[in-house]
């Protein structure tokens, strides 16, 4: 922990990123703390107003405060992203762990399967799953998670193989430790770091994928605010209200950037741990 604090002090970019991520997570948890305006019902007289003191992000075509809609939309977007990462992390790590630890034909079969998932472009794979499951934020999140399973499976497997062939695991076996003890006490703890760091790095990509799918209209149903669909709604008013799409999109970009900076810092940390 103290080392983490030291890291933030030596890397100002990581500190700024942390502030952004914490702020956005706070939006997701307690949106009411940051904006008093109603995200769902607007004041028609105030429609399509440019950003100003009353409406930081301006208003939309129904006179709703866009900052409020962005803040209130955070929760759905972040939860969808976390669900997607969860799906990818659990399924991918499970597959990778099995493949790496059991080896042999199980490994071959599972790795061929992940090769195939990698052969289908991520967004198309998600879209195929959405086609089959139907529309909605949760289904979109699952679809995005499925597309990331292969990446997690590969990283987990390579980590498990690295640890499994490590000399200290051989030493543990010679000391009489059983397979289960080796798995629990050596392999999992040592493989977990890089996989969790990958989760942090992938979180940004997953947020982008979730918002892309909801931008295409497969996610939240109106009038529920959600990041990607906010940008999509603004599309029709591009010529008259630049802020409508631009500012919510900027929030997405900043958050993804911040998550990426933190994720890379975390990756570096887990690498030096080896």
């Amino acid at each position: 922990m103290t080392r983490g604090l030291a890291l933030l002090r030596t890397r100002p970019a990581a500190l700024v990123a942390l502030v952004i991520v914490v702020l956005v997570l706070a939006w997701a948890l307690v949106p009411g703390l940051f904006t008093g305006q109603d995200p769902i019902t607007g004041v028609p007289a105030d429609k399509l107003q440019a950003p100003g003191a009353a409406h930081w992000f301006g208003t939309d075509h129904l006179g709703r405060d866009l900052f409020s809609r962005t803040v209130h939309g955070t929760s759905l977007s972040v939860r969808a992203a976390l669900l997607a990462i969860g799906v990818a992390l659990v399924a991918g790590s499970g597959v990778g762990l099995l493949a790496g630890f059991l080896g042999g034909p199980v490994d071959d079969a599972l790795m061929r399967a992940t090769d195939v998932l990698l052969a289908i472009p991520g967004l198309l794979l998600s879209l195929a799953v959405v086609t089959a499951l139907g529309f909605g934020t949760v289904k979109v999140a699952i679809a995005v998670g499925v597309a990331s399973v292969a990446t997690f499976a590969r990283v987990m497997r390579s980590q498990v193989l690295r640890v499994r062939h490590a000399t200290y695991v051989e030493a543990a076996r010679l000391a009489g430790a059983g397979r289960g003890a080796v798995l629990l006490r050596h392999v999992l703890p040592n493989a977990a770091g890089p996989v969790l760091a990958l989760a942090a790095v992938e979180l940004g990509a997953v947020i982008l994928a979730v918002s892309a799918l909801s931008f295409l209209g497969y996610g939240a149903t109106p009038p529920t605010p959600e990041w990607g669909s906010l940008v999509a709604e603004g599309r029709d008013y591009l010529a008259v209200a630049w802020w409508y799409s631009t500012l919510p999109g900027l929030v997405i970009a900043l958050f993804v950037l911040a998550v990426g900076v933190l994720g890379r810092a975390l990756t570096r940390e887990t690498r030096t741990d080896r």
């Binding site: 892309a212 940008v231 591009l238």
Partner: peptide, 14 residues
């Protein structure tokens, strides 16, 4: 890597 493609497109269009 961080900027959403759909957003870049809209900003360029604008």
């Amino acid at each position: 890597v961080a900027v959403p493609g759909f957003w870049v497109g809209l900003v360029l269009l604008h």
